[in-house]
Simulated scan of single mutants.
Amino acid sequence: MSANDPYARLPEVPSFTVTSTSVQDERPLQAAQLSGIFGVRGGGDVSPQLSWSGAPLGTKSYAVTVYDPDAPTMSGFWHWAVANIPATVTSLPEGAGDDAGSGLPGPAFQLPNDARVTRFVGGAPPAGHGRHRYLITVHALDVEDIAVPAGSTPAFLVFTMASHTLGRATLIGTAETPGAAEVVERIEVSRLIPALAGDIFAVLTDPKGHADIDASGMLMDAEGERVEQPGDRFLVHMDRDALGDLPLGKYDVEVVITNLIPDEEIAWTVEGRIRPHARHVYGYRLEPTEGGTLVTSYYDWSEIDEEWKERLVFPVVPESALKATLGILERTVRRRTAARPDAAGTR
């Protein structure tokens, strides 16, 4: 997609700060902010939580817009527009932009978006069209009432705001839908770890080792015996509140080993309290090489249950998380081997 900046065509104004618990800047949108209305599996069409601060002096109201400049049109695509947010308001809860605008403060109101519905519509880039950006912007205005009709288009709102804008704060979510020939159902990342395969495998077969190398912050602890063969299980204590994305709180899951070849490969799936089980698979392959062991971490969702395809947008675990876990694995192996009485590894 072109890296065009749609705000380059507007008067330059100071920036201020906008944050969100729903969207990370320059990161893919969560399923909740994708569009089930437009057919995205698991899409929730839930407007993001927003908080802002540092608006210029003289701000009398705010407007919020969500805009995709990369849509295959000559004018982009407006997903959401809210006008007349009072200057005393500096946040919107997640889901404020539902059909009723239930989370909006009076006298704020929503304008019809480019789908001609008066609500937030999530991202839904066409398959194979590449990475789309979703510009989530809070506009600080010098008037309490921007004086546009409720049935106006978002483009007309922005046109009217141009001469009243004191500041503008933007964060960017992204989304991409693979084309038919681009569907990926497995992620693999590799890292050369300067350690013996046996020392690395000792961490991966230890239930507490799984909590030690977790990069998500959700794995609190683990209980069980060291695994030795497919079918072995152990318990993991999870805390979804660590991510702040889904209201699942604290819960337990069972890790079920699906493949185990000593010092060469280990893989597992996870069984939780929700049925049917998703059946996505996590694993590691170990290949001794010059300088240590080449460790490949993989996440495979090719065999997930059909019901889960409707519940979640895969991959649940991004490539960046696999890379982070490999880094933590190297650190954990180094610390454990250094703490051993003999301080020597075995293959």
Rank of each mutant, 00 (worst) to 15 (best):
S2A: 08
N4G: 14
A8K: 07
P11G: 06
P11Q: 03
E12I: 13
V23P: 06
D25S: 02
P28G: 06
Q30T: 12
F38E: 13
V40N: 09
G44Y: 03
P48V: 04
S51Q: 14
S53P: 04
S53K: 10
G54W: 06
A55R: 08
T59S: 10
K60S: 04
K60P: 05
V64D: 00
T65H: 04
D70S: 10
W78F: 00
I85A: 04
I85V: 14
P93S: 02
D98T: 02
D98N: 13
G101E: 03
G103V: 05
F109N: 03
L111Q: 11
V117R: 11
T118F: 05
F120N: 04
V121T: 15
G123W: 00
G123D: 03
P126C: 02
G128F: 08
G130D: 07
Y134L: 07
I136P: 11
H139M: 12
E144P: 07
E144H: 10
P149F: 08
V158N: 01
T160N: 13
H164Y: 11
A169E: 06
T170P: 07
T170W: 08
A175G: 06
A175S: 11
A175N: 08
P178R: 01
A181I: 02
R186Y: 02
I187Q: 12
E188D: 14
L192W: 08
A195K: 08
A197S: 14
D199F: 00
V203L: 05
T205Y: 12
D212Y: 02
I213R: 10
A215F: 08
M218E: 15
L219N: 00
L235A: 09
D239Y: 02
D239H: 06
L243E: 14
D245W: 09
L248Y: 11
K250E: 15
Y251H: 06
V253Q: 03
V255M: 13
V256I: 12
N259V: 10
L260H: 06
T269K: 13
I274L: 14
R275T: 11
H277K: 11
R279P: 01
E290H: 14
Y299L: 11
S302W: 03
S302L: 07
E303T: 10
I304N: 07
D305K: 02
P315R: 02
P318I: 10
A321M: 15
L322H: 09
K323Q: 15
K323M: 15
A324H: 00
L329M: 12
R331E: 15
R331I: 12
R336S: 10
P341Y: 13
A343G: 10
T346D: 13
